[in-house]
Simulated scan of single mutants.
Amino acid sequence: MTFVSLRVAPRLSRTIPTEYFVLANLRNEGKVVGRLADHPISEIVVDDRGLRYRYVGVATRAADGRYDVDSLRPGEWIVQPGLVYALETKG
């Protein structure tokens, strides 16, 4: 009989600083699709390398008030003041 160890991966938020999941120095493109905390929500933002990100929602927070980065899907990033944007891929 073979036994398999079922180890649970550590939560990302405990091993990697939250700041690593936050995009900065973006320019807004596209239309404004809403507002959060008196800040406009742009449909598209672009970083300094020309990568485009599309608005997908509002970031959730953990019980301690920090962003719950474990709820992000691959390719999703947080943009202040707590918005989630997904990297647009070609294809």
Rank of each mutant, 00 (worst) to 15 (best):
37 A>E: 14
33 V>A: 09
57 G>P: 00
55 Y>S: 04
42 S>V: 05
58 V>N: 02
40 P>N: 10
45 V>T: 10
45 V>E: 00
27 R>S: 14
52 R>A: 12
34 G>V: 06
54 R>Q: 12
55 Y>H: 14
21 F>M: 11
43 E>R: 10
48 D>Q: 10
40 P>A: 12
29 E>M: 09
25 N>Y: 05
42 S>P: 15
37 A>Q: 13
34 G>R: 00
42 S>F: 05
23 L>I: 08
51 L>R: 15
22 V>T: 13
56 V>G: 05
27 R>W: 01
58 V>T: 14
33 V>M: 07
61 R>L: 11
48 D>Y: 03
56 V>T: 08
55 Y>L: 09
33 V>L: 12
63 A>F: 10
56 V>S: 02
52 R>T: 03
54 R>V: 07
35 R>S: 12
50 G>P: 02
28 N>Q: 12
25 N>R: 15
47 D>F: 00
33 V>I: 15
38 D>A: 13
24 A>N: 12
53 Y>F: 15
59 A>K: 00
62 A>Q: 08
62 A>R: 15
30 G>C: 09
62 A>F: 00
56 V>D: 00
26 L>F: 04
60 T>E: 14
28 N>E: 12
41 I>H: 04
58 V>D: 02
41 I>G: 09
41 I>M: 08
51 L>H: 11
56 V>E: 01
43 E>G: 01
55 Y>K: 01
45 V>F: 01
55 Y>Q: 04
39 H>Q: 14
63 A>M: 11
28 N>L: 06
34 G>S: 06
56 V>P: 02
54 R>F: 01
53 Y>N: 02
28 N>V: 09
28 N>W: 04
43 E>S: 11
47 D>N: 15
51 L>A: 13
28 N>D: 12
20 Y>P: 03
39 H>A: 13
36 L>V: 12
52 R>Y: 00
49 R>N: 12
24 A>C: 06
49 R>D: 07
54 R>K: 14
46 V>G: 04
35 R>F: 11
50 G>F: 01
59 A>V: 05
47 D>C: 04
57 G>S: 04
60 T>R: 15
49 R>G: 05
64 D>V: 07
40 P>S: 10
37 A>K: 15
30 G>F: 00
21 F>C: 08
23 L>V: 08
56 V>L: 04
29 E>T: 06
36 L>R: 11
